[in-house]
Structure formats: C-alpha cells, structure tokens
C-alpha cells in the first residue's frame, strides 16, 4: 500500500502529507468537538477539522454583484435541468390525477380533468388496503437497514484496517459474490430457504442483510474507512485502544456520511426490490409494495394504470422523505457528530 501512495503523492504534492493533521486547530464550532474529545481523556484524538455546512467566513466577504448574477444563473440552470429530470415523474403525477380513461388518450402533462379517485380506488383495490403493503415493506426495510449498518461496517473495518491472513482472497470472494446475476442464484436460494422453512416469512429478506451478504456496502465502507487518516487510529492504538474501541469511537463517527449513504441506499433499494420479494413471499398477506404494485398491471388483460400511478406516487413518498431527511447526514459530516 505504501507503494501505491507514493505513486500518487509524488507528482501531485499530496496534500495529506503537507499538512499534519494535528496542526489544524479549528475555529468556531469545531472547537467544541475538540473540547469534547479532550474531555474524554483517553483518546487524544486530534481535532480534525472536517467540513461543515457553512463555508468559512472568508467567502462571505466576496459577495459581489457578479457573484450574485452567477448564483442566479446557477439556480436557473439547476431548475431548468431539474425540470427535465423530473418530467417523467411529473407526467406520472399528472396521470395519477386524471380519469383512468384519459391517461393514454390525452397524454399531455397538464390534466384537463381532475379526478382523485385513482388514489381512493388504488388504495383499496387489492385484498388489503395499501397501508398493509407499506407496513410489510417497512418491516423488511427496517431489518435490512439495521442489518446492513451493523454487519457491513464490521466487515468493512476488517478489510480496511486489519492485516489478516488471506485478506486479498477474501476480498476477492466478497466482490465475486455480487458478480453473479440474481436470476441464477435465486432458485438455489429459494430451495435453501424452503428447506429452512423460511418461505413466506420475512427472514429470507432480512437475515442475509444481518450476515453482510451485501458486498456493495462492505466495499463502500472499506473505501470510506480508508479515507480516514490512519494517524488517528495509530494515535489511539499507542494509547492502548483495541480494535473494538477504534471501530466504535473513531471509525464509525468519522464515517457518518458512509453510514448515512448505506442506510439511505438500503432503504431505497430494499423498498424497490421486486424480484426476490416476489419469489420469497408467495402469500398475498405478505406482499410488499413493489409486488403489490405489479398486480395493477396485467399485460394479457385490463390494467389499472391510474391506480398504478397513484400508488406509485404514494410509495415514493416514504423514500422521498427518508432521502430528504437522510441527506442532512451526508452533509453534516463529522463536525456536528463530534468525536467522543
């Protein structure tokens, strides 16, 4: 690893080498974190000045007319591009409030007739009210998020920081496990879970997450852990901290953005995961949102497009809220989390 570092650092004046971590004593809010870490005593964690949401005051002085115009243009561009990005979703929203029959006969973006019945009809169209499927999805999602956060971060720490025997090989095996398409492993998996009598329970959808089978997130956290200056854990180690302590007290707090990313992605992807939920849950009482949504559409007969669009919008709301709320944690970064 040293070799790789050199290859990069030499030509580019590697910034990490220029600035010693301990030198940067931050002003403002960071000093609190610094004080807190000092208070904890045992770990003389250097007060690393990670970013906060606000820019350093320096910036504010330079607010001139030119920069205001530039910012206006930026907003205009972002809004315009945002509209293009959102067009399909807006179309879906508008279709969901059209009378069913007009959806394809009058596919313009602005509805000529308002009709909210798609929402009421769609909500009650299936065997259970739609809330039943939302709840089922929530249970699975919650288990998956917790599972991924715990198990993947543990595994990631080992791959990022521990020099154990056969690490590259295990790492390769880990990556390999996400290289096979689900369609060939789902049948053996089904057989396995059916032998365990797990079919029609949420277990096949949650237990694997508790056992770190989602290599995507292990690798994600490995990359983030490796981005955390090693001086930090070395300092802690000199002070006699063990791996468990370093993991909980240094790595996890410093990797908040990665943990937030993992939580958000797990939430969204599990929420949207159709195939495995379709296969492992055969009893309609256990159906989840994506499986329930499919039952609005039947390519061989009549489909309830209006209900589909309406319930798709409904099912987007929770993940949108999770995202809106969760992205704060991506932004907050380290400083406000503090280092205990």
């Amino acid at each position: 690893m040293t070799e790789r570092q050199d290859a990069v650092s030499t030509p580019r004046e590697n910034p990490a080498r220029d600035a010693s971590v301990t030198e940067a004593v931050p002003p403002g809010p960071q000093s609190q974190a610094g004080a807190a870490s000092g208070g904890a005593g045992t770990l003389p964690v250097p007060a690393v000045a990670f970013s906060t949401d606000e820019r350093p005051p320096l910036r504010k002085h330079r607010r001139t007319a030119g920069s205001r115009v530039r910012s206006l243009l930026k907003h205009a561009g972002l809004i315009g591009f945002g509209f293009v990005m959102l067009y399909p979703l807006l179309w879906m929203l508008s279709s969901s409030i059209k009378p069913n029959a007009l959806i394809f006969r009058d596919p313009s973006l602005l509805p000529t007739e308002l009709d909210l019945s798609n929402y009421t009809v769609g909500w009650n169209a299936l065997l259970h009210p739609f809330s039943h499927y939302l709840l089922n999805s929530f249970i699975i999602v919650l288990g998956s998020v917790l599972g991924n956060l715990m198990s993947c971060s543990l595994a990631a720490y080992a791959f990022a920081r521990l020099k154990f025997k056969g690490r590259p090989i295990w790492f390769a095996i880990m990556l390999m496990s996400i290289m096979l398409p689900i369609h060939v492993v789902i049948v053996p998996q089904y057989i396995l879970f059916s032998q365990l009598e797990w079919i029609n329970t949420f277990l096949p959808l949650i237990v694997p997450k508790l056992l770190a089978t989602d290599a995507f997130f292990i690798f994600l956290m490995v990359q983030f852990f490796r981005g955390i200056p090693k001086e930090l854990d070395e300092a802690a180690r000199i002070d006699g901290a063990g791996h468990a302590r370093i993991f909980f007290r240094i790595m996890l707090p410093l990797a908040t953005p990665a943990l937030a990313t993992t939580a958000i992605f797990t939430f969204i992807w599990t929420w949207n995961d159709f195939f495995s939920q379709l296969i492992f849950l055969t009893n309609p009482d256990m159906y989840t949102v994506p499986v329930a949504l499919r039952t609005f559409v039947d390519s061989t007969g009549e489909s309830s497009w209006g209900s589909l669009f309406a319930m798709s919008i409904v099912s987007l709301i929770p993940i949108f809220l999770v995202f809106l709320f969760g992205q704060k944690y991506l932004v907050k970064g380290i400083a406000t989390t503090g280092i205990k």
């Binding site: 543990l154 154990f164 025997k165 690490r167 496990s177 789902i186 396995l192 292990i218 791996h243």
Partner: peptide
C-alpha cells in the same frame, strides 16, 4: 489483527457459508 479479523468478519463468514456460497 488475525484474531480481530475473525471477530469483525464473523457475520460475513457465516453469511458466506450459509447463504452466499451454497447458491
């Protein structure tokens, strides 16, 4: 590190053995 790795990787090893590797 070797010892710690077993601890940190325990869930992953179990998952690999029980769920990933078989299929």
């Amino acid at each position: 590190d070797n010892k710690a790795a077993i601890f940190f990787l325990a869930p992953w090893f179990i998952g690999l053995g029980l769920i990933t590797a078989g299929p």
